[in-house]
Write a protein that binds this DNA or RNA. Structure first.
Length: 491
RNA sequence: GCCCCCAUCGUCUAGAGGCCUAGGACAACACCCUUUCACGGUGUAGACAGCGAUUCGAAUUCGCUUGGGGGUACCA
């Protein structure tokens, strides 16, 4: 059996989309599972929409997700080049072959003429299919058109290819994920394989590249199903082996429309910027359409590869629900070792003067604030009150807590007692316990006692472990903030 | 319009004729734990789109309807 070879072929007209990442993942998994090769090809035939920035983004994102390719533009390989724009000189040869064998013909129709044909079809409520009026142009007619300065596009002759290889006009293939798929190729229309400017169209270039790169399995989104029929016919007409195809359901936004920027991040790099971990992203996206046989959803790519069977992928679309991604992200954040997390969080702390804290204090701060993090970026807000002499008091903390008589009584008592406390974790722990106990005897719940202190010191009624907070802030700053809260109270 | 694909809790899914009074995960809700929030733990609620057919028996097979998605380019 020949080696399994799959590919991901993104078009660099934007940053790597999360949907493309999922397609890449399934290709990668398929390759891993079958001991094959995973190939990266950049499809940049449309020069206008392409940019180096996007190409770099695609490389970086794929790498960050752990989807390393065996052959590609940067690492090379036996069937390069792996960038389509560098392959332009190899396509004309195959176009000529098709022309010679009669599977393709020159088309001199102008955009206006084609537009008119389409208009007519729309009026008649019929499906538009190219009229084939250039199919049987004589040499004289062609010369005449050429003399007028018209440059022909090359069209593929669907009917001819269909007849040559299949008994009826129905083309059927066995899809790796969807099973039998079929289509009446009469409805396809003779499509352009080479533009009048000489550039190959997508459907043509893909076939040549996949054939020459010896791709054995084409796994891609189901938006390509109708292209598949066209491509199979080209493979056949050129005498190439037809690869196997597998079409994945699409990823939809929560409102069932296409996942776009207005729904939030869509590019892998955007997710990363927002504080998502690539481990969470790839794990989450794997669960869209695929499910583990042991029910354990948290898995690395390698673990998934062991368990992966392409025919078990769901053939329906799935909705990208951020909730579960977030849960998964928080799960992965919890697993990060302290030393590593301390560094990972720093980019999100640039607005603060980290110099205010010793390394021990910084470590302590992360230790007590990391638990509720869903996104790495959540640290920015979570840690605000550790910096500066004064603290921003949330309006609700002021009105609901600090402006109550109980809170003021508690705070006054706290200030008077804390002045004499020894400011160590152990001591603070026991002193506060006694403090809460005293107030409990006066009928004040421990929760309320702590709220008063927390609100004064952190400006909030929720947050990290209070003893840790006091320890990091130090006695001086703590008392300063507490006294200030007493003065500021509106009662 | 025409063609194609899809259809189990709100979401991701398990389920390949009897194991299903349909299982899990996220989200929701309740309770417990607790110095707050959170984490964690324990529970509760929640689905086979509809209609026909096949069968002793259907979430599982077939047909129709409905709904959703995709395609219909000298874009990829």
């Amino acid at each position: 059996m020949s080696e399994t070879r799959v590919r991901i072929a993104p078009s660099p007209s934007g940053n790597l989309h999360i949907g493309t990442a999922r397609t890449a993942l399934f290709n990668y998994l398929f390759a891993k599972k079958n001991n094959g090769k995973f190939i990266l090809r950049i499809e940049d035939t449309d020069a206008d929409r392409t940019s180096q920035e996007y190409i770099d983004n695609i490389f970086d994102s794929l790498k960050a997700l752990g989807l390393n390719w065996d052959e590609g533009p940067d690492v090379g390989g036996p069937y390069g080049p792996y960038t389509q724009s560098e392959r332009f000189d190899i396509y004309p040869k195959y176009v000529q072959k098709l022309l010679d064998s009669g599977f393709a013909y020159e088309c001199f129709c102008t955009p206006e003429e084609l537009e008119a044909e389409k208009e007519e079809a729309t009026q008649a409520k019929k499906a538009y299919v190219y009229s084939k009026k250039c199919e049987n142009l004589t040499n004289e007619e062609k010369e005449k058109l050429r003399a007028q300065g018209r440059k022909p596009a090359i069209r593929f002759n669907i009917a001819k290819a269909q007849k040559a290889f299949y008994p009826s006009s129905t083309l059927e293939f066995d899809d790796l994920v969807k099973g039998k798929l079929h289509m009446d190729t009469d409805l396809l229309g003779d499509f352009v394989i080479q533009k009048s400017n000489g550039a190959p169209t997508y459907n043509f270039a893909v076939v040549i590249d996949d054939a020459l790169m010896k791709i054995t399995h084409v796994i891609r989104g189901e938006d390509h199903i109708s292209n598949t029929y066209k491509q199979i016919l080209i493979f056949k007409a050129l005498g190439f082996d037809v690869p196997e195809f597998g079409h994945l359901g699409m990823i939809l936004a929560p409102d069932r429309s296409k996942l776009s920027k207005r729904h939030g991040a869509t590019a892998v790099s955007d997710f990363v910027k927002e504080g998502y971990l690539t481990e969470a992203l790839i794990n989450f996206v794997a669960l869209l359409g695929w499910s583990p046989s042991d029910g354990e959803e948290i898995k690395t790519v390698d673990q998934i590869a062991q368990d992966f069977r392409i025919n078990e992928i769901s053939s329906s679309n799935s909705i990208f629900e951020y909730d579960k991604l977030k849960w998964m992200n928080s799960h992965y954040i919890k697993q990060i070792p302290m030393d590593k997390l301390k560094e990972m969080l720093k980019p999100y702390l640039s607005k603060y003067n980290l110099g205010e804290l010793s390394d021990a204090q910084y470590t302590k701060m992360i230790e007590i604030t990391r638990e509720p993090l869903v996104l790495l970026s959540d640290i920015t807000d979570a840690v605000e009150y550790f910096f500066g002499q004064d603290v921003r008091i949330e309006p609700e903390a002021q009105t609901e807590t600090l402006d109550t008589q109980i809170a003021q009584d508690v705070l006054k008592d706290f200030v008077s007692k804390a002045v004499d406390w020894d400011w160590t974790e152990e001591n603070l722990h026991s002193k506060l316990e006694i403090f809460r106990g005293d107030w409990k005897e006066k009928g004040v719940k421990p929760k309320v006692t702590m709220w008063a202190i927390r609100a004064a010191i952190t400006g909030r009624t929720r947050g990290a472990d209070m003893i840790g907070v006091l320890e990091i802030l130090g006695k001086e700053k703590t008392l300063y903030r507490a006294e200030k809260a007493i003065k500021k109270a509106a009662i």
